[in-house]
């Protein structure tokens, strides 16, 4: 199987770098900043760091259950699918994420859409 057909997962480091109930950010050159969340229940999620309402940085919100409350106007966003909850409508794109052997991986093609084959992504702290 040619390598390009396989999903490529980008290692963004150990799960311990984000405390439960907190989030961390990953700027993307030429793309949208990503927020990675660690819920109190122990789940990890990655979303574009923008509220669908007024683009507030979701990474700075209070995380409760599997949702985050946007710091700007308190919209509640589902971390599972990026959708606004309650009476609000809107959706933030999510990035597929997996945990393997204590490390967090993001799906590369979801981070840099349309730049799949001639590009690879690298981390620089």
């Amino acid at each position: 199987m040619p390598a390009s057909d396989k999903p490529v997962w980008l290692d963004i480091g150990p799960i311990t770098q984000i405390e439960p109930g907190m989030a961390a950010t990953l700027p993307v050159e030429g793309g949208e900043e990503i927020a990675v969340f660690h819920t109190m229940g122990g789940n990890f999620y990655a979303l574009i760091n923008k509220c669908p309402h007024k683009q507030g940085p979701l990474s700075q919100g209070i995380v409760h259950g599997d949702s985050v409350s946007c710091p700007l106007h308190n919209w509640r966003i589902s971390l599972k699918n990026g959708k606004a909850l309650g009476d609000d409508e809107g959706c933030t794109p999510t990035i597929p994420l997996k945990i393997d052997a204590g490390r967090i991986y993001l799906l590369r093609e979801a981070i840099l859409p349309g730049k799949s084959s001639p590009f690879s992504a690298s981390l620089a702290a």
């Binding site: 963004i12 700027p27 993307v28 050159e29 730049k115 690298s122 981390l123 702290a125």
Partner: peptide
Amino acid sequence: KLHSHLATIRPEL
């Protein structure tokens, strides 16, 4: 941690 990014993702050839 609260003030820094986890990392920066850069596309490269």
